[in-house]
């Protein structure tokens, strides 16, 4: 045997990947995240809001959302309260007990926002996670089975896509009464088809890649290829979509609340707070501005985070 295999002395990328493997992958991701200020601020906002939501019961009195009666003396003048009590002074933001002011029921607006956050985030997470689970399962089945099953799943998603979300919510509320669970279901019903479509298209694209064929040629079974290779490779865009959707669901849900689907007039949901404040917007704009701002910041945080994850997972950056 005269031939020898040449040693390969140089590897172009080994300089910064010397102790290679998963750890350096994560390090590289963190580097990419640090390099992008938007991602950083997005994650601060998103993680911050989750933290506040988790600790809300400790930060503020969990019962402070309830109607304060008799209303505190320095609360803002409101005709309904006026009917009971004269001489209630307006209560704008900046006072020591009420940094963001108080609302029409004499409640501390800051406390209300802090108590509203966990409600919104819980609902949003449960909708997105359920939609994600249904979407990945159905999408994978549709893409991999193909043929009639694929067609059936697609048509079902079409039907649900065609549902007008608002009308559905109206009907459900009319039938089952005002209830947060019912409203969550109403949003979920119009939300999950997107994930089926997305997962399906991702898997279809991934299925055609040469490595899937290479595995088939190697003798790997269909399920092995699907679960160990194709799904893990096609899941990233779906995760990105889910992160983006957390903000989106919060917006949708607060819109529903704003439109008057709130179960109880006192629910400290962010959209409901805006809706409560809207009738006094000319005299007390902060009642609309602060809860609105809270919605925007949370949604923005998750959107930026989602965009950042997409950038970091971008294969062009990865190579």
């Amino acid at each position: 045997m005269t031939q020898r295999v040449e040693e390969v002395p140089f590897e172009p990328r080994s300089v910064y990947r010397r102790r290679s493997g998963r750890i350096s992958e994560i390090k590289y991701s963190l580097y990419l995240a640090r390099k992008n200020p938007l991602v950083l601020s997005g994650s601060v906002l998103a993680i911050g809001s989750i933290l506040i939501a988790a600790l809300s019961g400790i930060i503020v009195d969990p019962r402070s959302w309830a109607f304060q009666y008799p209303p505190r003396y320095y609360c803002w003048n409101n005709p309904w309260i006026n009917w009971h009590l004269q001489n209630i002074k307006p209560c704008p933001p900046g006072t020591p007990f009420y940094p963001l002011g108080a609302d029409a029921f004499g409640r501390n607006l800051l406390n209300m926002i802090i108590l509203g956050l966990p409600i919104d985030l819980q609902i949003s997470f449960s909708i997105v996670i359920s939609a994600f689970a249904i979407g990945v399962a159905l999408g994978a089945v549709a893409a991999y089975a193909g043929g009639l099953i694929d067609e059936a799943v697609l048509r079902i998603t079409d039907v649900f896509f065609a549902f007008p979300g608002l009308v559905l919510a109206l009907v459900l509320v009319a039938v089952f009464g005002r209830n947060l669970t019912i409203l969550t279901l109403a949003v979920l019903v119009v939300w999950w088809p997107l994930y089926v479509r997305l997962t399906r298209s991702q898997i279809l694209a991934e299925k055609e890649k040469p490595y899937a064929e290479a595995l088939k040629a190697m003798g790997a079974g269909r399920l092995r290829i699907l679960f160990l290779h194709i799904i893990p490779n096609s899941i990233y865009p779906v995760i990105v979509q889910a992160t983006l959707d957390i903000g989106g669901v919060i917006l949708t849900f607060s819109s529903l609340m704003f439109l008057g689907f709130a179960p109880s007039p006192l629910t400290p949901e962010l959209g409901k707070l805006v809706s409560d404040g809207i009738s006094f917007v000319s005299q007390a704009p902060w009642l609309v501005i602060f809860p609105g701002l809270a919605i925007v910041l949370v949604a923005l945080g998750f959107n930026l985070l989602g965009d950042g994850i997409r950038d970091i997972l971008d294969p062009r950056l990865r190579r």
């Binding site: 040469p210 490595y211 290479a214 190697m218 003798g219 290779h229 490779n233």
Partner: peptide, 29 residues
């Protein structure tokens, strides 16, 4: 019967380490 493809990058699962790519066919068979 085995096969070697034109584009070696595309024919390897990008999320698999070399070790896992090499041991996978042994596991399969």
């Amino acid at each position: 019967m085995q096969m070697v493809f034109q584009d070696p990058y595309a024919s390897l699962d990008p999320r698999q380490t070399v070790r896992s790519a090499l041991t996978e066919p042994m596991k399969i068979h």
